[in-house]
């Protein structure tokens, strides 16, 4: 266990470093941040002044070195627009994104798992076809499209729900449904296939031969075994949630990290983009580590190292 955590942390740090290097180089190759900040008509002296101020006159390798040197001292760089610490700018947006993402995640679980389990249990019936149809629709339709359709129906036509902003619980509904539907779709499909995988296993027949009724066989014997592969998917889903939030936050004017990322990239806020990348990567690495730990908790066979050689 400790070995697992140590290895993962090390690998996570390498991932952060690699990604950060990539983003660092690409952002600087793709355009001059000062163009975005000062506009085309700024006098050359002003441009030079800022260039020196932010260190853009230095060679790239030196900027790179200085940036990492700063990171180790807790200096994430500054936002060009308001001169605030880049990390601070990002951190104040995190709660909104976490609230939205987590709620959407729960929504996709609460919808996807029962749908998938029911589809497997009532295989090849109307229920199966209906829920799988829904699932395909859910992950085939792009987020922004679902979002716009929902706004059209519930905000513009019916006028039941607000179309943008935060504040009340009602503000949550449309973004959560938009962001969660795609997740629910893929979770449902995955839950169905892993249920079908276990439902004909020998231990299910044992449970039947013991005289257990069907609901108990499903809930106590099939679902816990089917849950093991589903957990893997959940780790990936978290990444999709973050990617999805970029779009959904833009559509619903949600003041979260996703929208900050879009704005920062357009404005060439180098330090802010880099800070977001670091935080997202750490989140992903942590999520995958949690998935692996959940594995060992769900599956006793994983607890001791795989039992050795069989003859």
């Amino acid at each position: 266990m400790s070995r697992l955590i140590a290895m993962r942390t090390l690998r996570g740090l390498l991932t952060v470093w690699g990604l950060l290097t990539l983003v660092f180089v690409v952002l600087r190759l793709s355009g001059d941040p000062l163009d975005a900040l000062l506009g085309d008509e700024a006098p050359p002296e002003v441009v030079d002044y800022y260039r020196a101020l932010y260190g853009f006159d230095q060679p790239l390798w030196r900027q790179y070195f200085l940036y990492f040197w700063g990171l180790f001292q807790g200096d994430w760089g500054q936002s060009f627009r308001d001169g605030r610490d880049a990390l601070e700018v990002v951190v104040e947006r995190i709660p909104a994104t976490v609230q939205l993402g987590f709620t959407a995640f729960l929504f996709s679980l609460a919808l996807g798992i029962p749908l998938g389990v029911l589809a497997a249990v009532y295989r090849n019936t109307f229920l199966d076809r209906f829920s799988m149809g829904f699932a395909v629709l859910g992950f085939a339709l792009p987020n922004f499209f679902i979002g716009i359709i929902l706004i059209l129906i519930f905000s513009m036509t019916l006028r039941w729900l607000p179309s943008s902003g935060t504040g009340t619980l009602a503000h949550f509904i449309l973004p959560v449904v938009t962001l969660g539907t795609a997740g629910a779709g893929s979770i449902a499909r995955f839950a169905r296939s892993s249920m079908l995988e276990v439902i004909n296993r020998p231990y299910m027949r044992t449970a039947q031969a013991k005289g257990l009724r069907r609901p108990r066989r499903i809930m106590w014997h099939a679902v816990p075994n089917a849950a093991i592969p589903i957990v893997t998917l959940l780790g990936f889903r978290l990444g999709d949630m973050i990617a999805g939030s970029v779009v959904v936050e833009a559509v619903f004017a949600w003041p979260g990290v996703g929208r900050l990322l879009v704005n920062s990239v357009t404005a060439r806020e180098l330090a802010v983009v880099q800070a977001i990348i670091v935080i997202v990567t750490i989140t992903m690495v942590t999520a995958n580590l949690l998935v692996d730990l959940a594995y060992t908790w769900l599956d006793p066979r994983q607890r001791e190292g795989r039992s050795g050689h069989k003859n």
Partner: peptide
């Protein structure tokens, strides 16, 4: 059937390890 199974007759299978639930 769930009343009868186990109470009147029980069954033992060929593959004994896979016949037990691996997570319980």
């Amino acid at each position: 059937l769930s009343e009868v199974r186990g109470r009147d007759a029980s069954m033992v299978f060929q593959e004994s390890v896979p016949a037990l639930n691996p997570v319980q």
